[in-house]
Design a protein around this nucleic acid. Structure first.
Lengths: 251, 251
DNA sequence: AGGAGCTTGTGAACGTGAGAACAAAATCGG
DNA sequence: CCGATTTTGTTCTCACGTTCACAAGCTCCT
């Protein structure tokens, strides 16, 4: 369960004409860098220029771009507008994707107001919440609608992307409803592991996990310089209470 | 520039007694799963149970845990409370980390109200904004303070983590100020590539990038089933305007 | 006490990603 | 028209991450 990658046992285990996942994750960064260059009136950029703007190394950038085709000119560089369009087309943001946001709490509010929803390519078609006291509230140019309308909205507007900004509790239920209604991509802000059937893509954004990763490295920094009394042995000292093993798995 | 990883040319290129980065990123997930199990009154769990709860495969979970030490019991599993404490200690969330949030727009508001700030281990000590009309506003139990107070606050409260929720424009300036004040870990929500000196860790959360990654896969799904007229050749058809290469790099 | 049955911890195989280095192709100057 | 220069696209190598498979170790039952 929870496998969302479609890996069929095809002939040579080759991803079907696919771009590596790590590259896909960087393409939006390149797209943004190209847009910035374009806005600055720059017409041509070398892989070195682009790499600097995108915060990566130039060899990696060139290899990434090579998966899309040969869009550069040796000795010259890349035409900014041309490459920008090619990447946008490859990602799929030359068309508009309909998005619903479920859960209009603080975060849902913030996302609903997010001007332009990042870059173009995405269109919020509905804000949904199950709380009757929220339904009807206006946020920007939209109105919060009842979660029960989900199915109608998804079908009417061909919604393929759902954003979950509910608390952890109802998130899996919301997710199931979204999938049942026909949504095939989900962006989850709720702090739970959601399980979805094969063929549905899911991505997670989790503030507290990010903070904890930072804390880990922060602790190392302090520990290295000042207080290296990290227990080297896998010892069991300083534990609140060391329970003896045993006690069934049931509740 | 923009390298935040401290890779010194030490003897065997071995990370200094370090846990692999991929593992570090999963430890918070395990921690959350363990907390959930603990709340359900479950005292012992096998790697299979834990892996299911965390949404990973059990071999990976066991290998991850093995970097921390041998905290399980063969034939039995892991003591939930014990393991939870060990992971919390390894991550560093047994102590409290002081956090400042800079940029009190929609998203800053949402984060400021985020109850408990995810899990324990983090304490918001200040909400900062440069806009004088925002300064003084109360959010929950806190009051927005002037960004100019940053240095004092960082020193007084030993702030090591900064969260940037400003627009893209001022983000790099804010980042520089944070670093200059002594912050050594940054969580960036602004859609720009920030560059920081060595020794400063930076993580990025970017809504529009996540959506674009979903869009890419979504496009593939549609294309596979219905309309496979993806141009197989690296052709240049359907382009808005195909510019001839040439035209200087300057503005 | 001893064997059967689980479950952990880890060694080895495999796949993916990153970076260095270089050949191929384009422009530019003479 | 040709060589020097620039920059891409690609190959090769190495490091990292994932998964399999199994020996080691613990508990429980007879």
């Amino acid at each position: 369960m929870t496998r969302a990658s479609s890996r069929r046992p095809g002939p040579p285990t080759r991803t079907e004409r696919g771009i590596p996942e790590a590259t896909v994750a960087r393409l939006p960064v390149y797209l943004r860098a190209l847009t910035a260059l374009s806005d600055s009136g720059i017409a041509t950029a070398s892989s070195e220029d682009l790499a600097t703007a995108a915060g990566v190394n130039s060899a990696k950038l060139r290899k990434d771009l090579s998966y899309l085709g040969s869009y550069g000119t040796r000795g010259v560089g890349y035409d900014v507008e041309y490459l920008r369009y090619q990447i946008a087309r490859e990602i799929g943001v030359t068309q508009d994707w309909a998005v619903v946001i479920v859960g209009i709490g603080n975060l849902g509010h913030a996302l609903a107001n997010y001007s332009g929803f990042g870059t173009r390519g995405f269109r919020i078609v509905a804000l949904l919440d199950a709380d009757p006291t929220l339904v009807g509230e206006r946020i920007g140019e939209m109105e919060v609608r009842d979660f029960a309308e989900l199915e109608d909205i998804v079908k009417a507007d061909r919604v393929s992307i759902g954003v979950i900004t509910t608390p952890a509790g109802p998130a899996q239920d919301v997710c199931d409803r979204l999938v049942a209604a026909g949504v095939t991509s989900i962006l989850n802000f709720a702090p739970v592991v959601l399980s979805v059937p094969d063929g549905v893509d899911i991505r997670k954004v989790d503030l507290s996990i990010e903070l904890q990763i930072l804390a880990y490295h922060e602790q190392r920094k302090s520990g290295e310089a000042a207080l290296p009394q990290v227990p080297e042995l896998p010892a069991l000292n300083g534990m609140p209470d060391l329970p003896s093993v045993g006690g069934g798995v049931g509740a």
